[in-house]
């Protein structure tokens, strides 16, 4: 509990073009509220997991991106809440995958840009969670989806890497694809499978015998 609060001097900063006086222990979101910045629509969890409160941040000549709920007010910074990103361009549904052997081929069809990384490091610099985004993309492009997905474990869907990518690789979605496809094809836990099998043979009938959830035993081809 080393973060001291209370008697520090106030700081002046700019949020969405509005001059704000705040206390340095405040996050940019709190400073925006305190300073009367018109409604902040891009903020939600306030604890760094939803990825909504994307900001551009200027300190002197240096401009970077961050999450407002994890960035503190400081003297002289300029910040701007970025609008939500546009919808992703890469389309796929997991249910289209019939077979695990063609994952890599399908991946290349869905994300053709992924092996065109020019190694500008923009995604890595953008990531508020310190993910090695470039390495993760390279792993996915090489078909190593489990490792790629693990690289994106802390991804909070802010999609700042997508905005930063000049090749339009959409690294966040490459990461999510990698995680999802790994679960979809490889997560087959024996204890769960055993209980499902028991329930298939003898469906659970609670006190009032409700209908079991339809479709929970639907056919899977994988």
């Amino acid at each position: 509990m080393t973060k001291k609060t209370g008697d520090e001097p106030t700081v002046d900063l700019l949020i969405n073009g509005v001059k704000v006086r705040a206390e340095p222990h405040m996050t940019i979101v709190e400073a925006a509220w305190a300073g009367g910045v018109p409604r902040i629509t891009g903020a939600s969890c306030l604890e760094g997991v939803c990825g909504s409160c994307r900001i551009l941040l200027r300190r002197g000549q240096e401009v970077s991106v961050a999450l407002a709920c994890e960035t503190f007010a400081e003297q002289g910074v300029e910040t701007l809440f970025l609008p939500p990103p546009s919808a992703p361009r890469h389309q796929y549904e997991l249910s289209d995958f019939k077979d695990g052997w063609d994952i890599q081929a399908r991946f290349q069809e869905i994300f053709p840009e992924a092996d065109r990384c020019r190694h500008c490091h923009g995604c890595v610099q953008s990531c508020p969670k310190g993910i090695a985004v470039e390495d993760g993309v390279a792993l996915a492009a090489a078909g190593r989806f489990r490792e790629a997905g693990e690289a994106f474990f802390e991804c909070v869907m802010c999609e700042l890497c997508d905005s930063a990518c000049p090749e339009q690789i959409a690294p966040a979605h490459v990461g999510l694809f990698s995680r999802r496809i790994t679960a979809f094809f490889h997560l087959r836990p024996p204890n769960l499978i055993h209980r499902l099998e028991e329930l298939r043979q003898e469906p659970f009938s609670g006190s009032n015998n409700p209908a079991p959830l339809p479709g929970s035993d639907e056919k899977e081809s994988s």
Binding site: L94, L176, R179, R180, I181, A183, F184, L187, L192, R195, L196, L199, P203, F204, S205, G206, S207, N208, N209, P210, A211, P212, L213, S216, D217, E220
Partner: peptide
């Protein structure tokens, strides 16, 4: 009863969503 009976199937469905 409906919810707890769904439990294992829900986990399976979530895995199918990735």
């Amino acid at each position: 009863a409906a919810m707890v009976g769904d439990g294992p199937g829900v986990i399976r469905w979530l895995i199918r969503q990735g």
